[in-house]
């Protein structure tokens, strides 16, 4: 799923080519759906977020430019931001995914097992972080947890959680720009 393959599909989508859009969907939807599902832990909500994201991709395809990153990264961001909105909307509604027939729950263990596919500089830099920093960033990225939710999840004071995230990100940035 390299940018080389996706860019022509996205360009054709920007011209209103629905066939290209369908191919783009086939190539990317399993990954994008998995990202949304991991965050929302609910198939129905994740499918709705995916629908919204792809409708946005259809309408905004012409907005993409290479300086925004790879096509897949641009699409992942659209899906993640839509999923974050959905997550917070449903949390406010106090919907419990356990009560939902379509619920899909991951084991509620504290740590997230992460097995990166392939190597990137980010992965190398993540490996250099303290375990706590890494865990806090993982939980925020994959599960969409806010600072205060991280406090409950890893039973650590708010100031410490904020500091893990901030210092982790600062260290990542230093490592990434080396």
């Amino acid at each position: 799923m390299e940018t080389d393959e996706l860019l022509p599909l996205l360009s054709a989508t920007a011209q209103g080519n629905k066939q290209a859009f369908a191919k783009l969907y086939s190539a990317t939807s399993p990954k994008l759906f998995a990202i949304s599902l991991k965050m929302l832990s609910n198939r129905a909500h994740a499918e709705e977020a995916l629908q919204d994201a792809f409708v946005k991709i259809w309408h905004n395809a012409s907005e993409y430019q290479v300086s925004k990153g790879t096509v897949i990264s641009w699409m992942i961001s659209i899906v993640r931001y839509r999923s974050l909105d959905s997550l917070r909307y449903h949390k406010v509604r106090k919907e419990q995914s356990l009560d939902d027939d379509n619920a899909y729950m991951e084991p509620a263990d504290q740590a997230i097992t992460v097995d990166y596919e392939g190597k990137s500089k980010l992965v190398d830099c993540m490996e250099q972080l303290d375990d706590q920093q890494k865990q806090a960033i993982h939980l925020a990225y994959y599960k969409g947890l806010t600072h205060s939710e991280l406090v409950d999840h890893i039973e650590t004071p708010l100031g410490t959680v904020k500091s893990w995230i901030r210092r982790g990100l600062q260290q990542l940035q230093r490592c990434l720009t080396l």
Binding site: F33, I35, E47, L50, G69, I72, V114, G118
Partner: peptide, 27 residues
């Protein structure tokens, strides 16, 4: 976005149900 979205590489793909495309297509 470009850097952090590399984290998504660890997430195993999972196809959504067929109805998702149908809804997108209609919309």
């Amino acid at each position: 976005e470009q850097h952090l979205n590399n984290l998504a590489s660890s997430i195993k793909s999972e196809p959504p149900s067929d109805s998702v495309w149908q809804v997108i297509s209609q919309r």
